[in-house]
Amino acid sequence: MPRATLLDPQGEAVERALHALGFGEVGRVRMGKHLMLDVQAGSREEALARAREMCDRLLANPVIEDYDLAVEGGGGRGAT
C-alpha cells in the first residue's frame, strides 16, 4: 500500500469513478497490491515472522510503501 503521506493517483482515480457512479458514501480510496503466499511453517507465528522478513527484504519498499500481514488457514502440510 502506498504510504499514507504519499500521493496515490490510482486510488484517487478509483475514488472519482465511484463517486461518478453514485457511491457518494466513499471517502478516501487507497490502492495497493495483494500478494498470497503458500508457506510451509511449523506455526502461525513462524509463518508470520518469515513473511515479515520477506516483506522487509523484497515484497515492500519501506520508503514508499506500508504493509499488513495476515495468516490464514493452518493444517494440511503445515500452516498456509
Binding site: L7, P9, Q10, N61
Partner: peptide, 8 residues
C-alpha cells in the same frame, strides 16, 4: 523511491 506518475 520512484512511484507511478501523478497523472498515471
Amino acid at each position: 523511491g520512484l512511484m507511478r506518475n501523478a497523472r498515471l
